[in-house]
Design a protein around this nucleic acid. Structure first.
Lengths: 236, 236
DNA sequence: GTCTATATGGCGATAGAC
DNA sequence: GTCTATCGCCATATAGAC
């Protein structure tokens, strides 16, 4: 049914989902512009309706992953989860709020998977490579973030602020990581840490596009590994 | 009116538009899947209707650049060019054909701008950097290719084959360029030419996303220049 | 909490007059 | 070559029954 089963859902996002420190930290949790109420959904009554919510989020993820947010329809989401459109809109006030919930949901899942705040920068970089390798097994999720981040480039897109903040935050963490490497004298390349962060993030994004278009021709993890190794001047 | 005036339109695409050799060569001109007639438009009667055609293409470029192909509407294109929808559809059989024409049109314009087939690989790389710098002055066009290439990731997208072929072709040219550099002993980095091509392309794509999301924070050309210089082991 | 029914509007595309 | 008119579809969203 949901073509992203729970195994997949429990996993990761895209390099674009690196983000978000464990919990307390100053993460970039700008809620997506819904133009509606503060996306309340109190905390109560989770036992039963929580299941349905998660099912909806998984379905929405799969639908939005195919052609982006604008092309995906509530109809399709509702159909996949076996509800009417109106029933779906009982759980989420509108389409934008659903998108916001999907992204937020993925972030919660992904937060635990890459150590962006550790003391060992090498571990962080290895985490990125491992992430890239994992992503290759979840094309739907990669497609979601890839399409969505391009689409959200428009200032009026409901996820625009979300992605702006996400990138800014992630770049900050990467910059810090490369700063640690510089302090340890373990970076060969000459460009500053800001550039290294930009490039790393850009490379991961760009590889995804090429990989989605021709999955057999690229190994995202290998390319990223080679790039980072080149940066370090030694095998990562 | 058309927010891409002619000055801009006469210029370039996006790194994604590098492509296409001058004319005869084995370029990747897969026509976009229209599901319709072979997009005939004979060759006659170009003097008068040609103007209108170009005006439509410019308008369509601007419209599709805002949120992609799926979100852009023929209505909007028609409005921008001052026609009815039906009038527009007299020039192009359907929406897919219009997209195909837009891409093809841009390729024609862009073909002359970056020397992908020259004998001096350094010139080619410098051309890429110059292109990146130019692109920073045409955000609408960058947005078009950025959004579209992500969107066209879906196999059923009308421009899917177009982008697959485009990337394959461009990678090939870049690989050849790096091959020439290796032959001349002018590449420092250890990874193979295929990787260099992948990475360069990926970097350009990824930088565009970040630049579109936060134009002030990145200089695409500077970053690309730094990357290529690092690859060469010396200032490009 | 989920449904039916419906309001409202945008979309691509066609038919046919001028 | 361009128009008006219209069709049929799908979209988001709301109201109210169960």
């Amino acid at each position: 049914m949901s073509q992203l089963d729970h195994d997949q859902a429990a996993a990761f996002d895209g390099e674009r989902a690196i983000v978000k420190p464990s919990e307390g930290g100053g993460r970039p949790m700008t809620s997506v512009k819904t133009g509606n109420k503060p996306q309340g959904k109190p905390r109560g009554a989770y036992a039963k309706t929580g299941m349905k919510r998660v099912a909806i989020l998984d379905a929405a993820l799969a639908v939005f992953a195919n052609g982006g947010y604008r092309a995906g329809s509530l109809r399709e989401v509702a159909a996949q989860v076996g509800m009417s459109e109106a029933g779906l809109l009982h759980h989420f006030p509108n389409k934008s709020a659903l998108l916001a919930a999907v992204l937020s949901h993925r972030d919660d899942l992904s937060a635990t998977l890459v150590p962006m705040d550790g003391d060992d920068p090498i571990e962080t970089l290895r985490g990125l490579v491992a992430l890239a390798r994992y992503n290759a097994s979840v094309p739907g999720v990669v497609a979601l973030y890839c399409t969505l981040s391009a689409e959200a480039t428009s200032p009026d897109h409901p996820a625009h602020d979300y992605f702006v903040d996400r990138y800014e935050y992630t770049r900050g963490r990467l910059e810090r990581t490369f700063g640690l490497l510089v302090s340890a004298g373990r970076v060969r390349a000459d460009f500053p840490t800001t550039s290294a962060a930009f490039m790393t993030l850009a490379l991961m994004d760009g590889l995804q596009v090429q990989w989605l278009l021709a999955p057999e021709s690229v190994d995202m993890a290998d390319e990223l590994h080679a790039f980072l190794s080149g940066l370090l001047g030694q095998e990562l």
